[in-house]
Amino acid sequence: MAIEKNLHVPKTIKLFINGEFPRTESGRHISLYEHGSQKVFAHVCRASRKDLRNAVAASLAARGEWEKRSAYNRAQILYRMAEMAEGHREEMVSLLTKINAASAGDANQSVDAAIEAFVYYAGFADKFSQVSGCVNPVSGPHHAFTTPEPVGCVAAIFDDNIESILALPIVAATLASVIASGNVVTALLPSNVSAQLAPLAEIFATSDLPKGVVNLLTGHQSELLDHLASHMEVQSICYVGSDRTTQEKLKTLGAENMKRVICFAPDANPTSLDRLAGFVEFKTVWHPIGH
């Protein structure tokens, strides 16, 4: 007997932590509806503080290895993400059209921009240290050079109000730029677009990216943001959004361990050197020049 047409299998969108797709340990969810209807399209996990803690712990564990990878290897993996994104194009387009009622053209453009971001940062991973590092002409018998190094464990926080059609490229670009230099990241995705972003997790999971380098959480920012911003193992916060109160809160909470809080407006250029430069520390190394 044929199954009724409307009786599809609603997807449960899970968290992405340490390369795996766990449900939230809290057993809570948020329902997402198809555009303009009461029809549940999918359930998203409503991550808890504990999920957040696990995600940060996973990223910390991944930090050493990812940092050590050659820039060339990171570039290869980022390019692989572009390839995998191309494979997920139809899925991403259909999500955008179904949930947001985006036109196929707009949806495709959004996917194009996301793919472009992966390609752009794949190409930058092994160049930005040449662009932003230098040899310093110090006075005296010393060789002194300055190179960028990843800042470490980054929290990426996306404003809930980011326009759905923009969310895909913004999130892709932000995460790609942060990990390109060797950082690890735990991201709090905009809750109203979580479903549309779900394919990103699958892209990260299948691009030879070491587990834990990228961790994705969905849920209520009001529950999680303070804990992420005050987490002492997080060295830097990337906030994409324009809410001044949130910015102030992140900066105030982050001051306890001197987090670098870098804010980008949602409409800021997603592909630029700024995005890389915000999440590096410059290290200057001196050595004598003698016999």
Partner: peptide
Amino acid sequence: KAGVIWANTYNKFDPSAPFG
């Protein structure tokens, strides 16, 4: 994890060398 590494020297400063 430090902004300035002095290898086989220490406390060298120069206006052209980033410090922080």
